[in-house]
Amino acid sequence: MKNSEIILKYGCNPYQNPARIYNKNKTMPFKILNGTPGYINFMDAFNSWQLVKELKQMSGLPAAASFKHVSPAGAAIGIPLNDILKKSYFVEDIELSSTAAAYARARGADRMSSYGDWSAISDTVDLPTAMILSKSVSDGIIAPGYTDEALKLLLKKQRGRYCIVQMDWNYEPERMERREIYGMVFEQKRNDVKIKEEMLDNIVTNNKNITESVKLDMLVSMITLKYTQSNSVCFVLNGQVIGVGAGQQSRIHCTRLAASKADIWYLRQHPAVLNLPFKKNISRPERDNVIDQYLRDDTTIMEMKGWNNVFEEMPNRLTKEEKAEWLSSLNGVTLGSDAFFPFRDNIDRASQSGVKYIVQPGGSLRDNIVIDACNEYNMVMVYSNLRLFHH
């Protein structure tokens, strides 16, 4: 391995060999402290790093992301957690720093998708953050630094094979970026647009009441979308992404996917879920999997057969009416979209999952219809005039 080149075991798949990453004879802006990251690991690492660095620069708070297959399962800034979220995220036994709170939130957005994630942290990884990672199924991490205690703990993960990357905070890539597809070279100016609060000035709905905390959520959503495979929509609440709909061909499918994930995120905080009678030896990934089944309306009797080995006693299922009543209290959610809404169906679906604030570029032929729909629900909608496609 040169300091400008890393030979990889293979590319996206085991049969795609040889594979490497290199930096045009320049010194790599990172160090591999442990493990052997692969092709997809590095793709997740560099996309997630850009996201958390930009969130940190925007908010001034530690930021974290949980990435899977080049899109965030979750992203957040380091706002303190209440007791309910601590229990829902399985971190009630850890004294959380602001950095640890950011990662707990990022991983807590979509715990099923975060299984085997790549983690990104904007600040030096401390012991509380490492403690969360040590108990999570995760493939690797990228951060600007690690305390001695944190590094010592992470080096034990995966029997010493856990991938740990240290990134140079000051690194800036070239202005132009290139890639090859089928032998053709694509070149474009790197997406270095800065997401700023001034982009939120154009409020197009009758309701124009917007707080500073909502503006922060809008900015979090836009920065997250900037590094999410398009089409994409994300839901944000209190500085935390709570649902991402990524890589869908239809805008409404993005919205439905993000909304369904936000619903699950909120249902996980229902007292019946927080107090499920799990046996003591059940791992956190197993709990996440069973909770997902428990909350699904279409879970079959066959899928429930193994629950006797998981629970001390079989719990009662939440009824559709109980779920609907709980979800009706979800409110104040911000929705961000990387491109305009072509139809009002997105607004109708979003309204069912607590969305009251929307930021999107605008520019659809049916903008007036979409605005009218928002006015019906007394939503606030902002036109950022900034499309954020990412491929």
Rank of each mutant, 00 (worst) to 15 (best):
A106C: 05
A143S: 14
V91C: 13
V70M: 14
S136F: 02
I141A: 09
V70D: 14
M131S: 15
A143R: 01
S119P: 01
Y103V: 15
D126K: 00
K68L: 07
S119K: 01
D148L: 13
P80D: 15
K86N: 14
L127D: 04
I121G: 04
G78D: 05
Y115D: 12
S136I: 00
S98F: 03
V91H: 11
Y146A: 09
T147H: 07
G78N: 06
V137A: 12
A120E: 07
Y103C: 11
R111H: 04
S71F: 12
S97W: 07
T129I: 02
R105D: 09
G74K: 13
A109F: 01
A63K: 05
A64Y: 06
S114F: 03
I121H: 02
L96I: 08
F90P: 01
K68Y: 11
D110I: 02
K86H: 10
D83W: 00
L127H: 02
G74H: 08
D126I: 01
R111Q: 15
K86T: 12
A63S: 13
P62F: 08
A76D: 05
N82I: 03
Y146N: 10
S97L: 13
Y146C: 08
K87M: 09
F90A: 11
G145Q: 03
F67N: 09
D93Q: 11
T124L: 05
P72A: 14
S97R: 11
A120W: 04
A73C: 15
P144R: 00
L85A: 10
A73W: 00
V70W: 09
I94N: 06
S66L: 05
E149G: 10
I132K: 06
S97M: 13
E95H: 14
E92M: 04
I79S: 04
G140P: 11
P62M: 12
A75N: 08
G140T: 11
K135F: 01
A64C: 11
A106L: 01
I94S: 07
D117S: 13
K135S: 15
F90R: 14
S71I: 09
S66H: 03
G60Y: 07
A65K: 03
M131P: 04
V91M: 07
A76T: 04
L127P: 05
F67M: 15
L85P: 00
Y103G: 02
S134K: 11
G145M: 03
I84K: 14
L85C: 05
